[in-house]
């Protein structure tokens, strides 16, 4: 294996990690602020992906499908938060797990009824439906992958700005740290919860839609992304966006490299990382040591 090929795989891993961050960043905030273990978070990713494939066919354009699916995912998340999640914030984690696992099954069944259980592909949208030639021994690199990585980086920057430079971000961090005190200052934490939930779900849906032209859609997308996202949340530290960003990149690269270099080991690589993080920095890799 050449050095160039290894570099290419690292680039692929970073792309994987950046998409993972869009899912895991929201999951981490929802876990940190709302205290909810939301197993259905991967379902938003799944719906984003399937809606991207379906709506691109219906509208004849990925670019038209994208805003429509984002609105649909956001509305779905809004409805679920109002009808279901807001009633379980103060309940034990077992209730969260049981309820959201039921939701995973229901949403997957809904997906199966709405569409089917086949694998579907989607062309990268114009003008990015082309590849870069990197050399004789190297595979061509899809331009869409670069575009998505760049866009995810911009989004990560935007989230960092929202979290660290705005009053909304400070209020969210205050709510994550101590909800009772935030309420005691007059901060409307239920409204914050709703906004964070919808934002997190929409980002997950967006990640699914961005991944579709490369990764295709198939049943079981939700579980696949959810498990990796939880690993990212644990490694990065619950409720920490910067921790989730760092962890997502590490997990993305580790997962991609392990699949190529040691395929037999690929299934456990990220869990070993999680194990190491739990031993070394149980409160998250970027958390200050007490």
């Amino acid at each position: 294996m050449s050095f160039e090929f290894l570099l290419l795989q690292v680039l692929n891993g970073l792309h994987h990690g950046l998409l993972l961050f869009l899912v895991a960043g929201g999951l981490s905030l929802i876990f940190g602020l709302l205290g909810v273990v939301n197993l259905a978070h991967g379902s938003f990713y799944m719906f984003g992906a399937w809606l991207a494939w379906w709506a691109s066919g219906v509208f004849g354009s990925y670019w038209l499908a994208l805003p429509v699916l984002l609105v649909l995912v956001a509305l779905g998340a809004f409805g679920l938060e109002r009808a279901l999640f807001r009633y379980i914030y103060d309940k034990p984690h077992l209730v969260h797990v049981l309820l959201t696992y039921g939701l995973v099954l229901l949403l997957d069944e809904a997906r199966s009824l709405l569409w089917d259980d086949d694998v579907h592909g989607l062309e990268a949208p114009p003008p990015f439906a082309r590849s870069l030639e990197l050399g004789e021994d190297l595979p061509d690199y899809p331009v869409w992958r670069l575009v998505v990585s760049g866009f995810c980086l911009l989004l990560a920057l935007g989230l960092w700005w929202l979290s660290s430079r705005t009053r909304f971000g400070a209020a969210v961090r205050a709510g994550v740290e101590r909800r009772e005190m935030a309420e005691g200052l007059g901060i409307d934490t239920p409204r914050l919860f709703l906004l964070v939930f919808v934002l997190g779900a929409t980002l997950a849906g967006l990640a699914g839609a961005l991944a579709t032209p490369i990764a295709s859609v198939y049943p079981g997308l939700d579980a696949q992304v959810l498990i990796l996202s939880f690993v990212v949340v644990v490694v990065g530290g619950i409720g920490s966006l910067s921790g989730a960003f760092f962890a997502a990149l590490v997990i993305g690269v580790a997962d991609t490299l392990a699949r190529d270099l040691v395929p037999a080991f690929a299934g456990v690589a990220v869990y070993l990382l999680m194990f190491a993080a739990l031993v070394w920095r149980p409160e998250g890799v970027l958390a200050k040591r007490n």
Binding site: E183, G184, G186, D188
Partner: peptide, 8 residues
């Protein structure tokens, strides 16, 4: 709920 917020 939200009494603390209302009073604050």
């Amino acid at each position: 709920g939200g009494v603390a917020r209302y009073l604050a």
